[in-house]
Design a protein around this nucleic acid. Structure first.
Lengths: 217, 217
DNA sequence: AATTAAATGTGAAATGGTTAACAAACTATT
DNA sequence: AATAGTTTGTTAACCATTTCACATTTAATT
């Protein structure tokens, strides 16, 4: 009864979506209750970590019983605000931008890509899976009110110029696939998805492991 | 002279690619030497963290001088084995797989996608940006020797069936865009890229920040 | 109602990662 | 050669996160 008042650790925040996904799955399967050690099997996170994480959001479980799946679903659904759909803009309709639009976070009706922008006149005016593509220069006029989230799939060099335009249009959350750190307002939250770095560090780890194994053999 | 013998922390490993990218950039600009505080400005990592990270790989710098850019380039290039190109297979030629092939980790000639596989007969036989697409059923025969790395861009439900096929064909490093934890050999290294989770946790953080600001105002 | 069994929530310890601060080492200058 | 100035590499402190282990609470059973 004290943990839920404290600041929620970054590491815990990053696991919320995993919890929500597992809970959803259990609900679809008609499971009514679940213990932390069963959740642990599903998402491969130690049960102690799960219980500690959950404790930040209140006393969700009952001793000797476990957690009510519907109660968890309600709690985590509220945390992620899945009731109110988040409308998202995509900047850059290259291969990646297009793929994201077509995919559109299937299974997550609360995440909806509603509009796209590009500087290439050949792409402007198109409609991709029902999502209109407008000229980036018209972003201020074309961005629907209430859109505070953008995904950038533009060349690294273009990124720095895009961010202030988004901020002026009211965007406060940005996910970007360009790896260069960019200047932004203190009220803007940015997340970098750096696929090249992920792959390179994965390879480093894999090679290191192989060397280990070779030594042991 | 003791740090370089110890195990390299996970967190440090994940930063190696960032260091390499910055060093490459400096080299292109003709910069000969660099201090840790200058690197800090470029990649937005505290200089103390940079020096500690570097110390794991030997005494790369000189007191009162800084680091020789070419020496760093050699050291980090060796860590990432950029001299010997890594050949990569893509499994799943949907929108995302196709985008990755076309992009092909530009600027990184050491990361090369050489082959793709799909179960859709309509896609098999195509060539995308010079990369041939083969039937997934023929993977064992068609995967070129020396390919130990694969990127999976397949539906979550298909993932579990793909992994053992890859492992039998000699793949030891896998990057996947499906979020479900998958069973694999202890010698296989897997990295999950979970775009939905990233977006959801980004939104959680952004909303939390807004609530903070609202309270302060 | 009392007892047994079970699983949570958390204090405390362990682990992992970051950073301030500075002695030591080197460069540059006189 | 000596001195002044600079920046590394590392020690020690700090902070964040994970995990153990168990008192406590609740469910289930007799």
């Amino acid at each position: 009864m004290s943990e839920q008042n404290r600041r929620i650790p970054r590491a815990t925040i990053r696991r919320i979506p995993l919890y929500y996904r597992a809970i959803e799955q259990l609900q679809r399967q008609g499971v009514q209750r679940v213990r932390s050690d069963r959740l642990s099997e599903i998402i491969h996170i130690p049960s102690a970590t799960i219980r500690r994480d959950f404790s930040h959001f209140g006393e969700l479980g009952k001793s000797g019983y476990g957690y009510s799946v519907s109660r968890l679903a309600a709690a985590f659904g509220a945390l992620l605000e899945v009731e109110s759909a988040e409308h998202i803009a995509i900047i850059g309709v290259g291969g990646l931008g297009r793929a994201l639009i077509v995919n559109n976070f299937r299974r997550n009706p609360d995440l909806t890509i509603v509009v796209a922008f590009d500087i290439d006149p050949a792409k402007v005016g198109q409609s991709i899976a029902g999502v209109p593509v407008y000229a980036f220069t018209e972003l201020a006029q074309r961005l629907p009110p209430g859109v505070h989230t953008a995904i950038m799939a533009v060349p690294s060099a273009a990124q720095a110029a895009v961010v202030p335009v988004l901020e002026n249009a009211g965007v406060t959350a940005i996910m970007t696939f360009a790896p260069l750190p960019v200047q932004c307002r203190p009220t803007t939250t940015i997340r970098y998805i750096d696929l090249t770095s992920e792959l390179q560090s994965l390879l480093f780890t894999a090679r290191q492991r192989e060397a280990q194994v070779a030594k042991v053999d």
